[in-house]
Design a protein around this nucleic acid. Structure first.
Lengths: 216, 216
DNA sequence: CGAATTCGTCAACGCCGTTGACAAACAGTT
DNA sequence: AACTGTTTGTCAACGGCGTTGACGAATTCG
């Protein structure tokens, strides 16, 4: 009984997604969301404890983009790699939101499904539960951490981002060669290519380590 | 000429460090810092463009804790490992600050010194500049990312943090065994031990991958 | 001595998350 | 049909935040 609800958690999350898509994640405020939904901002507090609670729900919603269904001829390693790449992409899709989500597992639907799928792939790869969990933690720290780091620059338009990288390289290249010999030598290679490529490199290194360890 | 300054970037950063040490990083606001320094909050804007600029400076200051001097009998791998562990520890020392710093390299004094030392260690390990940079990016993404993830929980008192981990494990353990078989089996191992240990595990995996790749 | 410049102070703006009192809209009971 | 209780959105307000522009005090230069 009671007054019939015009809002719901689902409707609110949908509105938040639309808002993020249109105006960017940093514009996802209680007031803006109220306007988006055509209701008073304080109405949201009937459905969420606070903004953190809301952010977790929105973050979890974006996770639904990750494809968890195992592919036919895909080995465990390829599955793990693909899942991590997609997880990172999903997080980067709403950059500043990721920063709020990554601090603690949401333990909501999509995240649970992801975790289950990743652990299953690892166990398929021959890791026993304890080792699989270690691998899981390592993969998540790298993936989510990488997304957190790249979030800010990923939000920039392509041209601006490249300009930003150029600026960093210039700063490094302008250093005194006596004080910073290694850095000067490395300067032209720093921040080359896309952040996606850098992450993929790091992920492959970690996977190589996993395989090496598993055999030992 | 002009009115003699009572403030300076250094003095402000010192005040910020004291404030973070005493009241926690989330209390580092322009107003609180003004009170700490006994001046009007708006005075800070004579020395920093905005809070982001201030946060970067404070973040860089904390980096001075990292010991960069190479130890006598230390192999490159041990050096890299130790530097990454110390970098993460330094970032975790002021948790919420890390979240603001990690998005872009500050390219300030301490960070430059760190980068130089890490690249030097890698080159000592036989990595040529391009490969060393790849390794550097991978290590930084893992280390800084890990710090970003663990920052929120690291800020909690020990007892609360353990309670939080317990709560997560309970949530996972309470899942339906048919829908989440792997997760249920893994539940008792998840978030066991300290975040430091989990990071060290991940770092070792990455280093193992680096060594494996270097030989190939 | 004035002029120019630096820099801290003051008051204000607009934003944020959040709360408590209130009113509208329903269901169940009598 | 009237009363009661509950749910749910509205409204106004609070205290916090970063930031800005006008102002005055303190200094150096011509």
């Amino acid at each position: 009984m009671g007054r019939p609800p015009t809002l719901s958690r689902e409707r609110i999350v949908e509105g938040a997604v639309a808002l993020v898509a249109r105006r960017g994640a940093e514009q996802l405020t209680v007031r803006a969301l109220g306007e988006e939904l055509g209701c008073d901002p304080s109405a949201l507090y009937r459905h969420f404890r606070n903004v953190d609670d809301l952010h977790r729900a929105v973050g979890d919603h974006f996770l639904s983009d990750v494809d968890l269904t195992p592919r036919p001829r895909e080995g465990w390693r390829a599955t793990v790699r693909r899942m991590c790449v997609e997880l990172r992409a999903a997080q980067l899709r709403q950059p500043r939101l990721a920063a709020l989500v990554h601090s603690a597992p949401t333990r909501l639907g999509n995240e649970l499904a992801f975790t289950e799928a990743l652990l299953a792939a690892l166990q398929r790869g021959g890791f026993r539960p304890a080792a699989a969990v270690k691998a899981y933690h390592a993969l998540i720290e790298l993936t989510v951490g990488s997304a957190a780091i790249d979030a800010a620059v990923a939000a920039l338009p392509d041209a601006e981002r490249e300009a930003e990288y150029d600026r960093w390289r210039e700063d490094y290249a302008a250093l005194d060669a006596d004080d910073f010999p290694s850095l000067r030598a490395a300067a032209p290679h720093l921040y080359r290519g896309t952040a996606d490529e850098r992450f993929a490199d790091a992920l492959d290194l970690l996977l190589a380590g996993l395989v090496a360890r598993r055999k030992a």
